[in-house]
């Protein structure tokens, strides 16, 4: 009886965690598509690191570890970090990459300062705040999954409502502005959606690995299609699939952390897609190339033959006169 209880309990935890990981993978995959297409893959890395002080401040102000409150703090900090990056690029001659690097590392450092401050206050409730650095998918509770589902669902809903506007923003911002779309507002909306996708995933996979959850599914999906709607759906599926597979692999063996396993799964999908996807994949390309080379050789040899025949005819003609 007791055995049975443990078994179901274990399965229940596993179920919660894998549902959480699947939701997370789907949401970050779908929204990461936009980041990858806009060449902002590393903005996600910056936002996820910069969220740390927000989490610490939210905890300091409220003293609670309710996921919604911490996520809100993380989102605000991630937002401010994005503003910093945009401000630095616009007002100084510092380039985008350096701006990202500075904001990422210093915000994170500030977060560490706040965390060490909280620890020294001796608040017993603070234990577990540092899961946001490395992530601990195995500690996902039902309420966390609920938060992920509601916020992520909201983000996806907004994406689908603003589908056509966001599509235009991603592919031709100048044109979007010229037909009177509020591009700056749309940019803010899209960045906010990205921030949401990141902060809800922090607890599960941590700041360091969150960027891969955004980038990898989108890159894998990109290899299979040239259409945005397919790419978003595919990226979501890839993300969800690796979330579930990663969770199961890590639960089937001892001492394999979930977050990194999920990341390795999704990286494997990228490698697989890059190698085998039709039209774009490496294998496809090399076949196409060798075929091209072969047909070029045929064409040139026949050309050489025909020109040499022509030359001979010409020579004969010349000899006549």
């Amino acid at each position: 009886m007791l055995d049975f209880f443990f078994l179901t309990r274990f399965d229940y935890t596993l179920m919660v965690v894998s549902i959480g990981a699947a939701l997370l993978g789907a949401i970050s995959g779908a929204l990461g598509t936009y980041a990858v297409l806009r060449r902002q893959s590393l903005l996600g890395d910056t936002i996820s690191h910069a969220a740390l002080p927000g989490i610490a401040i939210a905890f300091m102000l409220t003293g609670s570890k309710t996921p919604l409150i911490l996520v809100l703090g993380a989102a605000i900090a991630g937002w401010i970090a994005t503003l910093f990056v945009v401000g630095i690029v616009r007002l100084t001659r510092i380039k985008y990459d350096s701006a990202l690097g500075i904001v990422l590392s210093t915000f994170f450092g500030f977060g560490l300062v706040l965390l060490s401050w909280i620890q020294h206050q001796g608040n017993a409730n603070q234990a577990g705040l540092d899961t946001f650095i490395f992530g601990q998918a195995a500690t996902l509770l039902q309420r966390d999954v609920l938060t992920i589902g509601i916020l992520g669902g909201l983000a996806l809903l907004i994406t689908s409502i603003l589908w056509k506007e966001l599509k235009l923003l991603v592919f031709d911002e100048g044109f979007a502005a010229s037909i009177g779309l509020p591009t700056r507002l749309l940019d803010i909306v899209l960045t906010s959606l990205l921030v949401i996708a990141i902060v809800i995933g922090l607890q599960a996979v941590g700041a360091v690995l969150m960027s891969a959850m955004l980038v990898a599914p989108a890159v894998a999906a990109r290899q299979w299609t040239n259409r945005l709607n397919l790419m978003v759906i595919l990226a979501g599926c890839f993300g969800a699939f690796s979330g579930v597979v990663g969770t199961f692999i890590s639960s089937s063996a001892t001492a394999i952390p979930t977050g990194p396993t999920i990341i390795l799964c999704v990286t494997f999908m990228v490698v697989f897609s890059m190698a085998l996807a039709p039209n774009r994949g490496l294998l496809w390309n090399s076949i196409k190339q060798s075929r091209n080379r072969h047909s070029l050789k045929l064409a040139t040899s026949s050309l050489v033959k025909s020109t040499s025949v022509n030359n001979r005819i010409e020579e004969n003609d010349n000899r006549k006169y």
């Binding site: 893959s41 891969a212 390795l264």
Partner: peptide, 19 residues
């Protein structure tokens, strides 16, 4: 693209290290 290439490589290697 370059940014995505960086964003793919280091989390994968880091994950291997953590595991």
């Amino acid at each position: 693209k370059e940014d995505a290439a960086i964003g793919l490589t280091f989390p994968a290697l880091f994950s291997i290290g953590v595991i």
